[in-house]
């Protein structure tokens, strides 16, 4: 056990699974870096260094750099998964989904059903998401609601280094296609992470705080903000439960509903744009299944219905902030 960053936790999960299972391979743009170039090998280890060191240990046969052709290599990962490998393909930024979505949602996501249950596609697509990097509209989105909408895909959103390692190992061992979303702003966050391999099951929400007054459901980086708000409000006498669902598909609806039954108040924090996102999904769930328990209207804290802006002042306004979450919690708590 030692402190590890979100980046190190992901790297360690990949390395440990590659050691354990020779069918695990990784592929993506510049996953090693420097392919065919005159300078250093393993020059990048991924654009933000997450896969650094894998190529020297496992070789080019298992750490494949790709041309910039997401359609082809994400599709190749799907085909490899359907024929006996366990590929972990990196879609550098989730915003690039637009050029390869077919291979994910029409192929990987549907093989099992279309082929009468006879296909197994143990694919992992790792992808970076989220605002806060001043990366503007095409490198900052939170597109997990789109994946969540597709039956056949599993969608994983780790909120911390411990979560990232255990959920990624589970993703790699899982026999269904998994989309694993890494928030780029979390890569340098650190916490205690076991050295040994471990798994965190899908569809089991984590309660990162337990309180009696308000339930906050949050995803990814927003869990961190929700925890900050819960800790601050605890001192002011408002005690919050923070639910980190960990996976949006499967979604642990039981834990969300049980918590709302206890607190009677719900704030959903979602960094995805507000139409048809997880906040609306969970709000609808609670309105349908736990309406009688509600003591106040549900509040959703989301960005506005705009692309992610570039200017730092605008981007800061765009992202759901701890201040906005706090205001929402105070509003539902009537305090």
């Amino acid at each position: 056990m030692s402190k590890k960053s979100y980046r190190q936790a992901i790297n360690e999960a990949l390395a440990q699974e590659m050691r354990r299972d020779p069918t695990v391979i990784v592929m993506g743009e510049d996953n090693a870096g420097g392919m065919g170039a005159p300078g250093e090998d393993d020059a990048w280890g991924g654009v933000l260094g997450v896969t650094k060191g894998l190529m020297p240990e496992f070789g080019r046969e298992r750490v494949l750099d790709t041309p910039i052709s997401e359609s082809a290599f994400i599709g190749a990962a799907v085909g490899a998964a359907a024929t006996g490998l366990r590929p972990v393909a990196e879609l550098m930024f989730v915003d690039f989904l637009g050029v390869c979505f077919d291979q994910i949602f029409n192929q990987a996501g549907k093989f099992k059903y279309m082929f009468g249950g006879k296909a197994v596609t143990p694919l992992v697509v790792r992808t970076m998401y989220g605002a806060g990097f001043r990366a503007a509209s095409q490198h900052s989105q939170c597109l997990y609601p789109i994946f969540t909408h597709i039956p056949g895909l599993k969608v994983v959103i780790p909120s911390s280094p411990y979560e990232a390692k255990g959920l990624l190992i589970q993703s790699i061992r899982d026999d269904d296609p998994v989309i694993f979303l890494e928030h780029k702003v979390l890569y340098d966050d650190e916490e205690e992470v076991p050295d040994e391999p471990y798994t965190i099951p899908f569809g089991e929400a984590n309660l990162t705080r337990e309180g009696e007054d308000v339930t906050i459901v949050a995803f990814g980086r927003m869990v961190k903000f929700a925890n900050e708000v819960a800790d601050k409000l605890e001192k002011d006498g408002i005690s919050c439960t923070v639910v980190d669902p960990r996976t949006t598909s499967p979604l642990d609806t039981d834990t969300i509903l049980e918590s709302v039954e206890e607190t009677g108040r719900l704030v959903v924090v979602d960094e995805a744009n507000p139409r048809c996102n997880m906040a609306t999904d969970i709000s609808a769930l609670v309105a349908q299944e736990a309406f009688g328990a509600l003591k106040a209207p549900i509040k959703m804290v989301t960005p506005p219905h705009t692309p992610v802006p570039f200017a730092p002042q605008l981007e800061d306004l765009y992202i759901p902030s701890p201040e906005k979450i706090e205001a929402a919690v105070r509003a539902v708590a009537g305090a």
Partner: peptide, 24 residues
């Protein structure tokens, strides 16, 4: 590996099947 309802859906998949054959 399937007829495909998406025109051009198959070639990336077949690259993957070939990658499996090559890797294993």
């Amino acid at each position: 590996m399937g007829a495909n309802g998406i025109v051009g859906g198959g070639p990336p998949l077949i690259c993957g099947a070939a990658l499996t054959a090559k890797t294993l």
